[in-house]
């Protein structure tokens, strides 16, 4: 077995790299794939929190590199899905504790046992980014429809294109707000794709459910009713080669959706 190594990166911080990582990883594992996620954000790890695994970490990637434990010992199994593992970052070291070569080596070793290796990249384009990209052959660039995020994504795409090892990269547009797009206050998906001229792999709507799911340490793909969860599930399917149409985010057309929007409108008015 030779697994695919996909790095999830963005340039800008706070656009949802780690959330994307947790959700795509969980979705792929739910589909029966063996998945390992590597948090390379040394010193600022958070992937463990989003997965609710923060209390199970004994060894980190730095322990593996410094040979205090075996690679397999450091893999933390997910609570629900035995197909899903996490290799946590050390919280108390900086980006220099692991080198590109070492990360490449870890990815190669994991490729034997896993279908997918998802590498969570730190924000920025410095050594942390270089390390994360080192072992990967594919990339997902996460961005939001905001100027700063798009500009940084463009920079990242430029860097990825210069890397020989990266064979393909895709764009994931996060935190899309259909209402704002409709009122022409937010760049539309097409416009963003046009500007960055990259192939799209997912559109994730802004969803308050993300906040609660993060609070609980449970990725939102586990909530099948959530729109963002469905969108992430579709991304996973596309990664696996399925052709899935993009979700229609325009309007919640179900009866309950209409009732909800009517009442929230009403409550909103009363509060004023």
């Amino acid at each position: 077995m030779s697994g695919r190594v996909i790095v999830i990166t963005s340039g800008k911080g706070g656009v949802g790299k780690t959330t994307t990582n947790a959700n795509i990883g969980t979705a792929l594992a739910k589909a029966g794939k063996k998945v390992v996620m590597i948090d390379t954000d040394l010193g600022l790890r958070n992937l463990d929190l989003l997965l609710g695994l923060e209390n199970r970490i004994v060894y980190t990637i730095v322990d593996v590199v410094e040979k205090r434990c075996k690679l397999k010992q450091a893999l933390v199994k997910d609570k629900k899905n035995p197909n899903l593992c996490l290799l946590a970052a050390a919280q108390t070291r900086d980006k220099t504790a692991v080198t590109e070569e070492q990360l490449k080596d870890i990815c190669e070793r994991l490729q034997k046992d896993f279908d997918f290796i998802l590498v969570d990249c730190p924000a920025g384009i410095e050594q942390g980014f270089q390390n994360a990209v080192a072992g990967a052959s594919e990339a997902i660039v996460v961005t939001t429809p905001e100027m700063s995020a798009i500009r940084d994504a463009d920079r990242i795409i430029g860097l990825l294109e210069a890397k020989e090892e990266i064979k393909s990269y895709h764009l994931l547009l996060n935190r899309v707000r259909p209402k704002l797009i409709k009122s022409n206050d937010m760049m539309s998906v097409d416009e963003v794709v046009d500007i960055l001229s990259a192939e799209l792999i997912g559109i994730i709507p802004e969803d308050t459910g993300i906040i609660t799911s993060t609070n609980k340490g449970e990725p939102i793909v586990n909530d099948e009713k959530s729109l963002a969860g469905q969108a992430y599930m579709n991304v996973a399917k596309r990664i696996m080669g399925e052709e899935v149409p993009f979700l229609n985010l325009e309007e919640d057309n179900s009866f309950m959706g209409k009732v909800k929007s009517f009442f929230s409108h009403l409550v909103g008015k009363e509060k004023k």
């Binding site: 929190l49 609710g52 923060e54 906040i211 609660t212 993060t214 609070n215 609980k216 340490g217 009442f263 929230s264 009403l266 409550v267 009363e270």
Partner: peptide, 22 residues
């Protein structure tokens, strides 16, 4: 109706509690 929405909010408070403790 407001009560219904409060319920929803309470649920979120619960997850907030979880977040704070974690």
């Amino acid at each position: 109706v407001v009560g219904f929405f409060h319920k929803v909010e309470n649920e979120e408070e619960n997850s907030k509690e979880i977040a704070c403790n974690r």
